[in-house]
């Protein structure tokens, strides 16, 4: 099986380059995921670098650009990929080394939306009550694993990386605005109300297409826009 992998390593080369790798068929089992192949390639060439941890699509470590589409290596089947398998770091993010990008700007935007529950009433002795229907509204929002695949596929994020918050952060904002327990909806919406943070979303929908968890940031964003409108009326 053939691979073509983006390499960049500032200590030894100035320019990034593409390196070809190959794995013998005997090394590949049926149903094997791309991450397993990368681990085998790293055993051949220990300088090849990428992040990984859970190997099952829940920790968000190994988002990368796979044959032109962002996804998680650990849940991408080798058999489904056209060869040579082209691996690039997530687009639009500064590259630290090989497939590893600097996610700090991404997490800064996450932080910007105050991703924590804000309540004002005195806390009850037991749980805050929430009906199954209210709770169901959080499905599709709370499961985000912060992998960055969506934001790194969004042209608006590439063009305005500093000022547009990007789909992942906006999804989080929606997660708290929609939570029946949260009591800071107005502040949250006010904070989003400028020309960039939210409104640079032009509904290109790349985010929803790539999300490896099947979430729909685009829908969450339109919900935010809707809430904003409601508030203004």
């Amino acid at each position: 099986m053939k691979f073509s992998i983006y390499r960049y390593h500032s200590e030894s080369t100035e320019q990034p380059y593409i390196q070809a790798y190959e794995l013998a068929d005997s090394e590949i089992d049926a149903g094997m995921m791309l991450l397993q192949a990368l681990i085998k390639l790293k055993a051949q060439d220990e300088s090849l670098s990428f992040r990984r941890s859970c190997q099952e699509g829940v920790c968000g470590s190994d988002a990368m650009n796979i044959n032109g589409k962002n996804g998680l290596a650990c849940v991408t089947r080798l058999a489904d990929l056209k060869q040579p398998i082209q691996l690039r770091p997530l687009p639009g993010m500064p590259v630290i080394r090989d497939l590893i990008v600097d996610m700090q700007p991404f997490f800064k935007h996450y932080n910007d939306v105050k991703p924590w529950l804000i309540t004002k009433d005195p806390e009850p002795e037991h749980e805050w009550k929430q009906s199954p229907e209210q709770r169901a509204k959080l499905d599709g929002l709370y499961e985000c694993i912060l992998c960055g695949a969506c934001t790194a596929s969004c042209p608006s994020s590439w063009w305005n990386p500093d000022r547009f918050l990007g789909p992942a952060a906006l999804l989080q904002s929606a997660r708290f605005i929609i939570d029946s327990r949260d009591q800071a909806t107005d502040e949250r919406l006010n904070q989003l109300d400028d020309a960039y943070k939210l409104y640079r979303c032009h509904t290109i929908m790349n985010c929803t297409q790539v999300c490896p968890k099947g979430l729909n940031p685009a829908k969450a964003i339109s919900k935010l826009k809707h809430e904003m409108l409601k508030k203004k009326l």
């Binding site: 529950l117 749980e127 709770r135 709370y142």
Partner: peptide
């Protein structure tokens, strides 16, 4: 567990709104 719930953990719910 109540502390967690107060901090925002989206626990699944029973019909009466409890965890």
């Amino acid at each position: 567990v109540y502390e967690l719930e107060h901090s925002g953990v989206p626990f699944s719910r029973l019909k009466n709104g409890k965890i």
